[in-house]
Design a protein around this nucleic acid. Structure first.
Lengths: 222, 222
DNA sequence: ATGCAACAGATTATCGAAAATATTTTACCT
DNA sequence: AGGTAAAATATTTTCGATAATCTGTTGCAT
């Protein structure tokens, strides 16, 4: 069998929703499913706990981190801190290569967005191109830590974004916030870009609020 | 024997410099020293790797993360992103309780700073009060993630700060940047405070540069 | 001498049994 | 019935033996 990494495997399962929020991650079950011993599983879960996708309670094992509004809002706040600073630095330092990567990412994003609702696969492809675009924007920031933080926060955000089909993809491309954001970034209008990304971070929070998502069912806090 | 957590134990050893930068963390040795089996050690080291204090290489084990200028600078950049945003939110949301905590932290800091150079213990106490002050400033930001990130970045920063005795404690308290920073924060002069903390983040970078620290010996990059 | 392959020693990574801890069930008393 | 204690079961967590991998060394051919 191909050599696969348990951490990535579990992460994928969580992000794809195979392991649902709050689900206990039983040792026996994971051992069976991935065909590995206890040690690699515990190690992987420990790391994922540090990453924020998994919750660990002493002597009670691990479970998939639950979703709630407060946590989503917090992700947005943290992303705000990271992406604002990273974008600022990126727009100051970014060279021609950086610009062209943005143009390329934007092109892909447009294509994937157009076909987003054709199937589950094209939807996933759209999501991927979306995250890639955001990464491209800050790619020139020069800070490994900011890039890594963005990556992790994007992952955590993804689980929430998938709760609803975000009504953010318009037939008219110019209606899409990303079009305008990318344009402003490439024109190096720094303050405008930072302000835009700050608002942009709140889209999923607002969308779920507008849909009444958190009021519908009884909210599971734990 | 008291029930202790291996992760905290190893973290302390790294931060206190018992385990020096780049030192391989051998399983056998740690097993012996802490009197535990392999599993808890690997788990702890995995988490510490995610935290950034330890480096993990597949099939080559773990070692204490090395120190170099680029990494210190990156810590400063990340702290900049986190503390600027957190301070901003804290200054907007902070109530009377928050203010009084700052006054208290500042008082302690002043006392510890005055006695900082008496002994190794008082120096450590000063460091602790310093980090506590910074935490107090952003305590009202309302974001668990930003608070957690600050904590982790402070830890990572600590190893660098200890490389030199930072000539930042003046007999005249008003010369200390922290005095002015705390004052500006309490007066809610937002833009000034954010600008100050941004500069403040670079103190250790500049101090080590000024001391020629990185040019002295041959820099170990790996 | 130099390069390379096979061997030997050291170290990490994994496994599954055993110990520790939590949870559920049962039995008993008021 | 309601509540508590003890036993039984389920689950996590740790341990040390074993397997896998890396590193350095020897011996041999060029």
């Amino acid at each position: 069998m191909a050599k696969v990494n348990v951490e990535d495997l579990v992460r994928d399962h969580i992000l794809r929703g195979v392991f649902k929020p709050s689900t206990p991650l039983k040792m026996e079950e994971l051992k069976e499913r991935f065909d590995v011993g206890y040690s690699p599983i515990r190690e992987a879960l420990s790391r994922l706990a540090g990453e924020g996708l998994v919750l660990a309670e002493a002597n009670k094992g691990f479970r998939v981190r639950p979703l709630n509004r407060a946590d989503l809002y917090d992700i947005a706040v943290a992303r705000c801190a990271v992406e604002k600073e990273a974008l600022r630095r990126s727009m100051i330092e970014g060279d021609d290569g950086w610009e062209s990567e943005i143009v390329a990412a934007m092109h892909t994003y447009r294509k994937k967005a157009a076909a987003a609702f054709d199937s589950a696969e094209t939807l996933a492809a759209w999501e991927l191109s979306h995250d890639r675009l955001h990464t491209a924007l800050i790619a020139a920031c020069g800070s490994p830590r900011l890039l890594d933080l963005q990556q992790r926060l994007q992952e955590q955000h993804m689980r929430y974004r998938r709760l609803i089909v975000i009504p953010n993809v318009r037939a008219d491309a110019h209606e899409d916030e990303h079009e305008r954001l990318a344009a402003v970034v490439l024109e190096r209008r720094l303050d405008e870009a930072v302000a835009m990304i700050e608002r942009h971070m709140m889209i999923t929070v607002d969308a779920l609020d507008a849909a009444g998502y958190w009021t519908a069912g009884p909210e599971p806090e734990t």
